Amino acid sequence: MAAANDAGQFQKFQIQRENTTFDAYVVGKQNAPGVVVLQEWWGVNNDIKNHAIHASQIGGGYRALIPDLYRGKVALDAAEARHLVEGLDWQGAIKDIQASVKWLKQNGSSKVGVTGYCMGGALAIASGVLVREVDCVVAFYGTPSSELADPSKALAPIQAHFAELDTYVGFADVTAAKSLEEKLKSCGVPHEVHIYPGCSHAFMNASPEALENQGAIDLAWSRFATWMGRFL
């Protein structure tokens, strides 16, 4: 049963996998290719909803689905966000992503991509390694730990975006980006790794810096559109 959310654009569904149920927020064209949109460490907030709406309106239109990996919790400050991400069951989150991809495929989307930001970017790449049903990935400023997933074993085409000035060492900085690129080269799947000069972590979000980053944001969305259009 669907219920419109406050913004009036999303429908809220419940998806079951194994012995747990989670909320999913869905926007976009029925029977279009699907895109699972994965949250940052903050939770399902306005930034991630805006990304999903934007993604749904690209090209001929997509059906975008945000799985609520935190089960309703949203952080308002960095300390709270850190607590939430440290408490995340990463393997369970991968299962949530798989269930979301399957839900879209069972509800009119013949192909489904996964995108995500920060924590969600790491999970998006991991899903391209671990979830066979994923048709392609676009990840923003995040890489999975070696314990979670090895990108050199990726099954799906992966495009990844990073900021030149990112300070999250080993996770989203330039070194992490170049390491990811080397691993993707070794596995032979189609891949692209882009680094945006002068940008900092989370440059895609609405922020005081967003106006300065607008060129990079537009370029990243253009590349997103081309990648999703190619594989979905």
Rank of each mutant, 00 (worst) to 15 (best):
K73I: 03
A156R: 01
G61K: 04
V169A: 15
Q159A: 12
H54D: 10
G92L: 14
V36T: 06
A139P: 06
A216G: 07
M1H: 10
E181R: 13
D218M: 13
F171T: 09
Q159H: 09
K102P: 05
N45K: 08
K185N: 13
I97N: 03
G108W: 14
A126D: 07
S152D: 13
T175P: 00
L184I: 09
F224M: 13
N31L: 01
V35L: 13
N45D: 14
S56I: 06
P157R: 09
L38Y: 05
A210D: 01
Y196C: 05
A4W: 05
A156F: 05
R82K: 15
K178F: 05
V112M: 10
G121L: 09
L184W: 03
A93E: 07
N213M: 09
R63T: 04
A220F: 12
V112N: 01
A3D: 04
Q98W: 10
G34P: 00
K153G: 01
I66Q: 02
T143E: 04
A216H: 09
S179M: 09
S186N: 14
W41A: 07
V174H: 01
E40C: 04
M228C: 12
K185A: 14
D47V: 07
D47L: 04
L69H: 02
V174P: 02
W103Q: 03
A3T: 11
N50L: 06
V138G: 03
F203H: 11
R230Q: 14
A126T: 03
E212A: 14
H54F: 08
T143D: 04
G43K: 01
A126N: 06
Y196F: 14
D47T: 02
V44E: 02
D77K: 13
L38R: 03
D166F: 05
L69G: 02
K183G: 05
G43T: 05
A225H: 08
V134H: 00
K95V: 12
L219F: 14
D173H: 11
Q39Y: 01
E18D: 15
K111V: 00
P190V: 00
S100I: 09
P208Q: 01
Y70K: 03
T21K: 12
P151C: 10
N213I: 02
P144M: 11
D6Y: 10
V36I: 14
